[in-house]
Amino acid sequence: MTTLFDPIQAGDIALANRIVMAPLTRNRAPGAVPTPLMATYYTQRASAGLLITEATAISHQGQGYADVPGLYAPEQVAGWKAVTASVHAAGGKIVTQLWHVGRVSHTELQPGGGAPVAPSAITAKTKTVLLKDGGAVFVDTSEPRALRLDELPGIVDDYRRAALAAIEAGFDGVEVHAANGYLLDQFLKTGANQRTDAYGGSIENRARLLVEVMQAVTAAIGGGRVGIRLSPVTPANDIVDADPQPLFDSVVRQLAPLGLAYVHVIEGATGGPRELPDRPFDYAALKAAYRAAGGTGAWMVNNGYDLPLAQQALAGGAELVAFGKAYIANPDLVERLKAGGPFNVPDKMTFYGGGEKGYTDYPTLG
């Protein structure tokens, strides 16, 4: 039987095992530039089959939280080069998650103090993070403005350029963040997208921006180095869709021809319940729709997995399992899973912002 510790090929990326470090926002990149401390953090976790970095802004406009890294300036590429070189020297594989937050932002984080952008001018009833007096402060998101039709090609190009910058920075690939109520997810879902043009209304129209982004990114760096993250029913960041099953079945059918490295699916509520009675969803049907359309990417599952649940998922046909919070406190999670524990407990007070404490100072086995 397949185990978490067996190797696998995800597109063009050969992975030593099926354990993935999920993307985790940690707010430790002042000025949006990756630091040597970040290189230490990721290198400590390089025994994972695949590291997915914290979400990384494709543009200044795409930033929604204080001190998150970017991939749109030379100094950011240089900072990431040090991270990827260190991870590769330790034998790891690493991709970066390309991010545009859309409406989940604040005027203090936007170019010129402008309004965040969104498919429609609907404020997200959620919080974002500013850093004040050395600490994380949660504030309401600012009212967004609706993107003009003539702005959308520029956003597609920002994703393309960020993907090329990621390869220049030494990453093994990229993951396009289309989940958790951020820009691409906002376009997909009816609760945030009330447009009446070619990017709103029908499923085909609401999926148009995502498909254009994925086509541009795969054309730029090759589908075998590209993954995507989807969250069909999560309520994260005040997002909802009236009928998610046909929407996401259509999305994965449209992605199937692109030859992706993997499809990363958050099951249920991000960081919360795996089953949502008011938002039922058939994940097996989603995978079946992708495979039936010729999709070959590895199928990655995510949300609240432990060792028994992960093994059950692999037995059920999943190919990669992403672990999030467990990786905050357990840099050697692969070894701890092999040993059946023990597992360090993360310090929630150090999740967002700060330095080494709660970041690079967790002990390893032995």
Score class of each variant (00 low, 15 high):
Met1Lys: 13
Leu4Ile: 10
Phe5Lys: 06
Ala10His: 02
Ala10Asn: 02
Ala16Cys: 03
Arg18Thr: 11
Ile19Phe: 08
Arg26Asn: 02
Pro36Val: 03
Tyr42Arg: 00
Tyr42Asp: 04
Gly49Lys: 00
Leu50Gln: 01
Gln63Asp: 01
Val68Ser: 01
Pro69Trp: 00
Gly70Phe: 02
Gly70Asn: 00
Tyr72Thr: 00
Pro74Gly: 08
Val77Leu: 05
Gly79Ile: 07
Val83Ile: 14
Ala89Phe: 09
Ala89Cys: 04
Gln97Val: 03
Leu98Phe: 05
Val101Leu: 13
Arg103Met: 11
His106Phe: 00
Leu109Met: 06
Ser120Val: 10
Asp133Val: 02
Phe138Leu: 12
Val139Met: 03
Asp140Ile: 04
Pro144Gly: 13
Arg145Ala: 10
Leu147Met: 15
Pro153Arg: 10
Gly154Trp: 07
Ala162Cys: 03
Ala165Leu: 03
Phe171Asn: 00
His177Asp: 06
Ala179Glu: 12
Asn180Arg: 03
Tyr182Met: 12
Leu183Phe: 09
Asp185Ser: 14
Ala192Phe: 09
Ala192Thr: 14
Ile203Tyr: 09
Asn205Tyr: 03
Leu209Thr: 05
Glu212Pro: 03
Ala216Cys: 13
Ala219Gly: 15
Ala220Asp: 10
Gly224Cys: 13
Gly224Thr: 13
Arg225Leu: 09
Arg225Tyr: 06
Ile228Pro: 01
Thr234Lys: 04
Ala236Gly: 00
Ala242Phe: 14
Leu247Trp: 08
Asp249Gly: 15
Leu258Pro: 02
Ala261Ile: 02
His264Ala: 11
Ile266Arg: 09
Ala269Leu: 10
Glu275Ile: 14
Asp278Leu: 07
Asp282Gly: 11
Asp282Ser: 12
Ala285Trp: 12
Ala285Tyr: 13
Tyr290Lys: 09
Thr296Arg: 14
Gly297Glu: 13
Asn302Leu: 08
Gly304Ile: 07
Gly304Ser: 06
Asp306Phe: 01
Leu307Val: 15
Pro308Arg: 11
Ala310Trp: 00
Ala310Glu: 08
Gln312His: 12
Gly316Val: 05
Glu319Ile: 05
Ala322Ser: 15
Gly324Pro: 04
Lys325Cys: 03
Tyr327Lys: 00
Asn330Ser: 13
Asp332Phe: 07
Leu333Thr: 08
Val334Ile: 06
Asn344Tyr: 11
Val345Arg: 12
Gly354Trp: 01
Gly358Met: 06
Gly358Pro: 05
Asp361Gly: 08
Tyr362Ser: 02
Thr364Gly: 10
